[in-house]
Amino acid sequence: MGYREVAAKQHGFLLPCQLTKQELQEAQETGFIIDPEWESYTSPYVFYTTLYEPYTLDNYLGWLVAFPTIPPEERFPTPYFAGTEALRIHNFVSLRSDEPSIMITPPALMPHINEKYGLTYVMNENITPDDWILVDDTPVENILPAMRKFFAHVYDFDDALDTAFSAYHRGYSWDEIAWALEPAVDKWASYETGKTPTNGKEVLELFFEERIPAPRPTDNESIE
């Protein structure tokens, strides 16, 4: 596969390690490699090409430059975004949390991380394909475990409520959401009783005190 095909597969980006000196010279001389229209802190780690479409794949770019000396096809097991960052990629909006941007990483790749990229790398020796899905070609943690990490760090009651109700409208059950809420049991107290929840279901009850979610169109499930 030539470097142009590699760039097409990677949405217009190339890692320096994917080019020989001759290919790099050719790509620069022919104008295939371009300078971004803005100053980018990812530029030292990845080449932008004429195939790049601005503002469309920032999450994929972040994953690509996290290990700038390792081509994507050699990243196994697959490192993936997790927690609050994963929920943002899943399009849960307005997420406020003091959690750092996390990437779950296999131990074999830890020596190759880009420490300047601003991610927190969490080592996991047992990454499997069931732990993540692709969202716009970016490996992203599944929603429920990502929510559990988010709820451990969320500080805003309304933001937590909106996230839980958004998961409900995406098809998750209240039992699943209650499991994800367990790390938030000591964050808020009931306005009605003054008691602090002891489990995820009781956190949901606090949310229901504030607002009852609109029902899903095809769901008759009770929130009790």
Rank of each mutant, 00 (worst) to 15 (best):
Y45P: 04
E37F: 03
I33C: 00
Q18T: 08
G12C: 10
I34M: 03
H11M: 15
V46T: 08
L51C: 01
Q25L: 04
Q18G: 10
E26Q: 14
T49E: 06
S43F: 14
Q22L: 13
W38K: 12
E53H: 15
I33A: 03
E53A: 14
Q10F: 13
F47L: 13
Y48F: 15
Y52A: 06
G12E: 09
E26D: 07
E37M: 12
Q25E: 07
D35P: 00
E26H: 03
I34C: 01
T49H: 10
L19R: 02
Q18S: 09
Q22F: 07
Y45M: 07
Q22C: 06
Y45H: 07
C17Y: 05
S40I: 14
E26C: 08
L15H: 05
G31I: 00
T49M: 07
P36K: 01
I33Q: 05
Y41H: 14
F32M: 02
P36S: 06
T30H: 10
L24F: 09
T30N: 10
L51A: 05
P44V: 07
G12I: 09
E39Y: 11
P16F: 05
D35V: 03
G31Y: 00
K21P: 04
F13D: 09
L51V: 10
E37S: 12
Q25G: 10
Q22G: 10
S43D: 10
Y52N: 13
Q10D: 07
L14W: 09
I34Q: 05
T50L: 15
P44N: 07
T42F: 09
F13W: 15
Y48A: 05
S40D: 15
P36W: 03
W38A: 04
Q28W: 00
F32H: 01
A27S: 05
S40C: 13
V46S: 08
Q22D: 13
F13T: 05
P36Y: 01
P16Y: 11
C17M: 04
G12R: 09
G31E: 02
I34D: 00
V46G: 02
T20M: 04
S43Q: 15
Y52L: 14
Y45C: 13
G31A: 02
Y45K: 05
P54H: 14
L14M: 12
L24A: 02
T42P: 03
Y45D: 14
P44G: 04
Q28H: 06
F13R: 03
E23P: 10
H11R: 15
